[in-house]
Simulated scan of single mutants.
Amino acid sequence: MQVSTRTDISPVEQLHALVAADMRATDVLIHERLSSAVALIPDLAKHLIDSGGKRLRPLLTLAAAQVGGYHGAHHIKLAAAVEFIHTATLLHDDVVDDSALRRGKVSANIVWGNKASVLVGDFLFSRAFELMVETDELKVLGILSHASAVISEGEVMQLKSSGNLQASEDHYLRVVSAKTAELFAAAAEAGAVIAGGEHAKALRAYGQNLGIAFQLVDDALDYSGRQALMGKAVGDDFREGKVTLPVILAVARADEAALKFWKKTIEMGTQGEADLDRAITLVEQTGAIADTMERARGYAGLACRALETLPESKIRDVLAAVADFCVARAY
């Protein structure tokens, strides 16, 4: 698919522009539904929600509704619900991973504690389901409630495989498909369904493949100098003992000394100051970063091809450009 886009703004920014009015309405609704008599709830939630995220998942919901020619208002509620689900999972993730930073800021669990983060995450899940019910669309409720369950399953799968160097690439992709790609897929599918469902299958496939590509790039960047240039922390996955694709590939190609290193740092969790630099060197030397990025390009290509059944439009072209951009951001 040939995509012509401006070069001065990113495809994600272009997508924002195409659904600008809907995105503003979504942001207003998000902040309205954060209200609570318990001041800690909006304070903690806004710490993450207002921290500069691109709102990519709700953008997919709004874009999918636009592709289907939707003229109602329920897509705004769905987009807000999607953002609440995403934020809730991030709050829970940071507790599970004992993360200190999120989007360049001190994470909510460090500021307010683990118990508050978990409970506010639960509050956001509840708000999301309230919004879904208000659309009076049972199919949409089924899509997003199923996605919430799948995401939780993905988190548990990842937790169980932490520190396990025997984890396969197939297992890793199952985790990514559940933990990350499922919400991308459900967000796009829900927007299509609210618009009548004509393009729901294609847009779900687009979201699923975009989500996998997105996570592959994130996992590659965690072992890349490019991550530091983008102002983000490097090596979080390594420090947390996560067995992501760069590690799986590096371990498969490791010599005896490198294998001992991975067993010490990932399986045993014994890490010294110089170990992250060595890990980065090993994944680069074995071609693990390059191969992870190649797989990401493949999934981005699948996302673009899923759009080919949609009618030609500016928004279809920009969605394709978003898939390409999600890989290009690593360079």
Score class of each variant (00 low, 15 high):
Gly191Asn: 10
Gly191Val: 08
Gly191Trp: 09
Val193Arg: 07
Val193Gly: 02
Val193Cys: 01
Ile194Val: 15
Ala195Asp: 05
Gly196Tyr: 07
Gly197Ala: 10
Glu198Ile: 11
Glu198Gly: 03
His199Arg: 07
His199Trp: 14
Ala200Gln: 12
Lys201Arg: 14
Ala202Ile: 03
Ala202Phe: 03
Ala202Trp: 01
Leu203Phe: 01
Leu203Gln: 02
Arg204Asp: 02
Arg204Leu: 05
Ala205Ile: 01
Ala205Glu: 15
Tyr206Glu: 04
Tyr206His: 07
Gly207Cys: 10
Gly207Val: 02
Gln208Ser: 14
Asn209Thr: 03
Asn209Ser: 06
Leu210Val: 06
Ile212Asn: 13
Ile212Arg: 14
Ala213His: 14
Phe214Asp: 06
Leu216Pro: 10
Asp218Gly: 07
Asp218Asn: 12
Asp219Leu: 05
Asp219Phe: 05
Ala220Asp: 11
Leu221His: 11
Leu221Arg: 11
Asp222Cys: 00
Tyr223Ala: 11
Ser224Met: 11
Gly225Cys: 10
Gln227Asn: 13
Ala228Leu: 13
Ala228Trp: 03
Leu229Gln: 15
Leu229Ile: 13
Gly231Tyr: 06
Gly231Asp: 07
Gly231Phe: 06
Gly231Cys: 04
Gly235Val: 03
Gly235Trp: 11
Asp236Ala: 08
Asp237His: 09
Asp237Gln: 10
Phe238Asp: 05
Phe238Leu: 02
Arg239Ser: 06
Glu240Asn: 14
Gly241Ser: 05
Lys242Gly: 06
Thr244Pro: 08
Thr244Tyr: 07
Leu245Asn: 04
Val247Tyr: 09
Ile248Trp: 07
Leu249Asp: 02
Leu249Asn: 03
Leu249Cys: 03
Val251Asp: 01
Ala252Met: 03
Ala252Trp: 05
Arg253Lys: 15
Ala254Trp: 06
Ala254Val: 04
Asp255Arg: 02
Asp255Met: 09
Ala257Leu: 08
Ala257Phe: 01
Ala258Arg: 01
Leu259Ile: 00
Lys260Met: 14
Trp262Gln: 06
Lys263Ala: 06
Lys263Thr: 06
Lys263Ser: 10
Lys264Pro: 05
Lys264Ser: 14
Lys264Asn: 14
Thr265Asn: 15
Thr265Met: 07
Ile266Glu: 02
Ile266Leu: 14
Ile266Trp: 10
Met268Ser: 13
Gly269Ala: 04
Gln271His: 04
Glu273Trp: 00
Ala274His: 12
Asp275Val: 08
Leu276Ser: 11
Asp277Asn: 14
Asp277Trp: 00
Arg278Lys: 15
Ala279His: 03
Ile280Pro: 11
Ile280Thr: 14
Glu284Lys: 12
Glu284Gly: 00
Glu284Leu: 00
Gln285Cys: 02
Gln285Trp: 01
Thr286Arg: 13
Thr286Tyr: 07
Gly287Phe: 10
Gly287Lys: 11
Ala288Leu: 08
Ile289Arg: 13
Ala290Glu: 15
